[in-house]
Design a protein around this nucleic acid. Structure first.
Lengths: 248, 248
DNA sequence: GCCAACTAAAATATCGATATTTTTGATTTT
DNA sequence: AAAATCAAAAATATCGATATTTTAGTTGGC
């Protein structure tokens, strides 16, 4: 339910329009796994739940197509984008490539303010995690936001808006899988140390090392998800509900 | 004006829905430069022009956001995405990276059918261009479609859907710039020979050479656009019409 | 001349009704 | 038992009216 106050909550207006508010809410619900991969998104139900008209829901869903979080099909409606082991491999490999490219470009061009941004983001992240980088109890959402801030800060000095755009899409795709691994334990992995090593290499302007470390960091998440999801990809998706084929 | 027959024209239904038909029409108009970069897209005018309701137009525009061809702004409407020299550089560099990655993966995995697809696409393309690769008179649109088929065929065997998705977005972004260079002459460039060399290296499974050639091919288009657009980027965009800042 | 305030016109965003399509379940045919 | 057909229910897509916001132009004060 989108309350009127939601539109004006916080330090700044959350959304100028109801469409944008519904978009943000749906986006959050998908990224957090409340709406499972492959799940149908019945406009009629969402209309009732959010208290807006069908057209408003449709438009919000259409905007989520750009984030690759929703797939539309004419006359049949909308679905949460699918997730699968194959997709995780692809997301991982492609993200490794783009993060790496972005980080390399940032290292070439970054100035002191950029470095300060990284240090600050790392510090904020450290405050909501234990020494191994596990999110503190009840602060997973906060950790996720600060994790994103940290990764955004690493490539903030990259001049390529396209690289950053695609990378961001994949970062969030990865988030859908990452939450599975975080909620089930990170094994013996020390995410905090990984972040710190990436930061150190970056500040030292060692592009090759930094890129190798970020790639390993990303690959490790994939490996962890595979380990906890090894029972099969049933854990990754909603029971099939007339789900369309994967979009091209 | 979307005619009823448009929805059922050709060998297959063009669109199941009016939204999709408007989406395709708008997409074509933007890619062809009929709707200039930075131009406002007034819903009220488009509604009248296409003979559909405002909500239908809005939804079609929202779907174009995914293609990075339209930028929305709450309460202010929609705009054709901006174009600029900086953007062309970014599109080019990022596309070079993704095409190259896609081609390399395709070369690793492609089978005989993939090779046949490339040869066939090259052949079809050759039939609508002169010996230097200039489109034949009055067949620019056809050439563009077959050019796309050729480039799609090159990476058809790439397993990474994400690479192909992002690459496709950039291919079309590049198209907006490419039409400028084609309509103003390709100088002494031999696009046909470039395609042929790329194909030869690809069929020979020489990934390093093929990737270097495709990157040069893409860079050459950028250089050409710069040459013909050297009067400044006024040629690239509509007069500013309350255009929003470039989207992040 | 510049800026703030105000108003009317223009445009955007949203609604709920309804036309259209798909899905579901029952029945009939093979 | 499986496949085809049909009708009703459910859902999607679209419309046009209207509430809301922005834009453009005018006026007045400094």
């Amino acid at each position: 339910m989108i309350k009127e106050s939601t539109l004006r909550a916080g330090d700044e207006p959350a959304s100028k329009t109801r469409i944008h508010a519904v978009y943000l809410q749906l986006r959050r619900d998908i990224l957090h796994g409340k709406l499972l991969p492959g799940a149908r998104l019945p406009v009629e139900h969402l209309r009732a739940e959010y208290g807006v008209s069908a057209g408003t829901v449709r438009e919000a869903l259409s905007l989520l197509v750009a984030d690759a979080l929703v797939t539309p099909e004419g006359q049949r409606g909308f679905w949460v984008a699918q997730a699968s082991e194959d997709d995780l491999i692809d997301v991982t490999n492609t993200r490794m490539q783009l993060e790496s490219a972005g980080l390399r470009q940032a290292i070439e061009r970054g100035d002191d303010a950029w470095e300060a941004g990284i240090v600050a983001a790392f510090h904020r992240l450290s405050l909501v995690e234990d020494k191994t980088g596990r999110p503190l109890e009840g602060r997973l959402d906060e950790w996720e936001l600060r994790n994103q801030d940290f990764h955004d800060a690493l490539i903030a000095a990259c001049p390529s808006r396209w690289t950053k755009r695609f990378r961001s899409i994949l970062y969030h795709q990865h988030e859908r899988y990452r939450r599975i691994s975080l909620s089930q334990g990170a094994g013996d992995r020390n995410v905090h140390a990984e972040h710190e090593a990436i930061m150190a290499a970056t500040l030292k302007r060692d592009a090759d090392l930094a890129c190798r470390l970020i790639e390993q960091h990303i690959a490790a998440t994939r490996d962890l998800v595979f380990r906890v999801g090894v029972n099969g990809s049933a854990d990754l998706a909603a029971p099939s509900a007339g789900a369309p084929a994967k979009s091209s």
